[in-house]
Design a binder for these strands. Structure first.
Lengths: 350, 350
DNA sequence: GGTATTCCAGGGAGCGCTCTCTCCAAGGTC
DNA sequence: GACCTTGGAGAGAGCGCTCCCTGGAATACC
């Protein structure tokens, strides 16, 4: 039960709590921080003092000494060259179920540790802004969702010695921990499923080609088909939004009306493609089979429901958080990477 | 050009920069903070020292003195009683374009002021966690997106004297600034449009009924129809997700197959309703006209494109930020509210 | 030329906490 | 009973910064 202080008044300090309890500042500090060498009776007394005064430790003072803030940032970064897009960055990241799943997974690990997560969008013009925030020491480390291999942020964090973990293999080799899914294997799963259900004219809608994960999915799809004698695979690139998927599908079918199997690099674009196919009067899956990627909520919300490649984003984010905490705890410089396995989820679209 | 320090080494302090430049700590501090009473030559020298050492002010030390952090939180709150839902909270908020628009609008105002925005989801079991974060003084104030009139968070922030601005009229009167849109007027616009295009059997899908804004939209719709002699208006409540809109539409049309005009309390649910109508074989807008609310990107992505009520979320969020900054600057306790006007955006669905 | 005034750099206190070091008291050992 | 060990509380320094106050140099005034 905290007594609410009258407005504008400063919150009580350790010293005041100590006075209330008739002990020293040190003892109160020990109680707050759970140091065991405190007489149980005193501990009880101090606890009452804390409750009575409504004491909350002053973060600034504490972290000035400890050099810890007990919070980490989830930074969603966007490179320069993709800023001029139909859909604004913030719209995109807050519309894709992706971010919600990452957040959920990270919180799963961070909350029990008492660590706060702050989410910061970092589209390119505001990069320096976010960088300043991170350098000022607001957070102990960062979970970095970086989408382009041209993104300077990973390198910058590295240089500054700010603990960070990436959400995917970095474009350029970097001494940083990261988490990833076997992108190529996922694409292969999709390819082989499409072949297995008897499709012969396959095509793919990829993500932005400056992203390693997009490159991998595209390469994986092509490689798997090459093994089965398909030398040429039409493809079009989107930017992971529904609208871009719709657009890409239109282009693809305009140029290659014979396509009967489509692998789309995420579910949102697949949903857009489904839209395009409906407009074009192509029945799914009868005439065209569609496989997505992510197994997000979007895959369940479209008609027909999407066959897709599941990637365990929540677990991946949780692992990112674990890697980050390990890195923050000991200044252990050797980076680790953890790779997850994708799997095919069969539904109606293929 | 900042020189990158070798890993693990602490960042330089004011004192070190002062030594480099051969001046006092105070002078460097003045340069950093843009105090004008510094000799231009010295200023120049100090600036070189700052660049050379790669100095960044230590936030903890600074805010220990200034009691400011130059960051504010965007807290998205969720009450207890709505936690057991089909779609997890994080999925919901990170799928609705709503949050992206709010963020964009707030950043528009905050970034030029050099103020950082940190986003924190606060579903009920983690409420105390977020509250602790706020009380510790991580931020100077909070933009609160609170959805239920049962939500204790606004009251708590009030009691703690933490500057905050609400995104909507609070359920219970509270001495807090807020921003809102004329919900009832918006609903009236929808009602009158549906009547104007000759619909007679009107129904509505509302948001969660513990939200003042949902209540207002529902009441406004009913009131407008009452004026035109419609005493009974079937309604079903959703939770602002696509899936819930689909579900609600199914229920509504099962019970009232005669419905020919539907007002849905947000675009996402309207999209779900469109889905349901497609499944039911009802043509939109020929057999059933549908009007949404928000004018979000979702309204453009569905087929037929959605006629909807526009609310200027970006401007509203910007105004929230402005109100908050005013509140933080001077400890001016008198709350203000700013109400925005909705308007009808005609597209294909009605 | 001496004194009052202005300007601007430096000195020092102190923000609220942690953490080490010191010190006292109680218990154990011979 | 004198000495040593140990448990647990208090004292004090110091984290890096801001901000007030002081003081010296430069300028203005009589």
């Amino acid at each position: 039960m905290t007594s609410s202080r009258p407005d504008g008044q400063r919150s009580p300090t350790l010293e005041e709590v100590a006075e209330w309890a008739g002990v020293s500042r040190s003892t109160v500090s020990r109680v707050i921080n759970g140091v065991s060498t405190v007489d149980p009776e005193l501990r009880e007394l101090v606890q009452r003092a804390i409750d009575a005064t409504g004491y909350v430790p002053n973060l600034a003072a504490r972290s000035l000494v400890t050099r810890r803030t007990d919070s980490v940032a989830l930074v969603v970064s966007e490179p320069d060259d993709r800023t001029e897009q139909t859909e604004p960055f913030l719209n995109r990241i807050f519309t894709d179920p992706f971010l919600g799943r990452i957040t959920a997974g990270a919180l799963e690990v961070l909350r029990p540790e008492g660590i706060h997560l702050v989410i910061m969008p970092a589209e390119s013009p505001a990069h320096h802004h976010v960088l300043r925030y991170l350098r000022q020491g607001h957070v102990d480390g960062v979970l970095l969702i970086s989408s382009s291999d041209e993104d300077p942020l990973p390198q910058q964090l590295c240089d500054l010695g700010i603990p960070a973990v990436l959400s995917a293999r970095p474009g350029k080799p970097l001494p940083m921990s990261y988490v990833d899914v076997e992108q190529q294997v996922g694409a292969k799963l999709a390819a082989e499923h499409l072949l297995a259900i008897g499709r012969h004219h396959l095509a793919t809608i990829s993500g932005p080609l400056d992203m390693p994960s997009s490159q991998d999915r595209l390469a994986g799809f092509r490689a798997a088909l090459a093994v089965h004698g398909h030398a040429y695979v039409p493809s079009a690139a989107g930017n992971f939004t529904r609208a871009s998927g719709e657009q890409a599908a239109r282009e693809l079918f305009a140029a290659h009306p014979e396509i009967d199997g489509l692998f789309v690099a995420n579910d949102l674009m697949a949903e857009g493609a489904l839209q395009a196919l409906r407009d074009l009067g192509r029945r799914v899956p009868e005439e065209v089979a569609v496989v997505g990627f992510d197994n997000s909520i979007a895959a369940l919300q479209c008609r027909p429901r999407l066959t897709t490649i599941h990637q365990p984003l929540e677990e991946m984010a949780a692992e990112m958080a674990r890697l980050l905490l390990a890195r923050i705890g000991k200044a252990d410089p050797k980076p680790r990477s953890v790779i997850f396995h994708p799997r095919l989820v069969k539904r109606e679209s293929a």
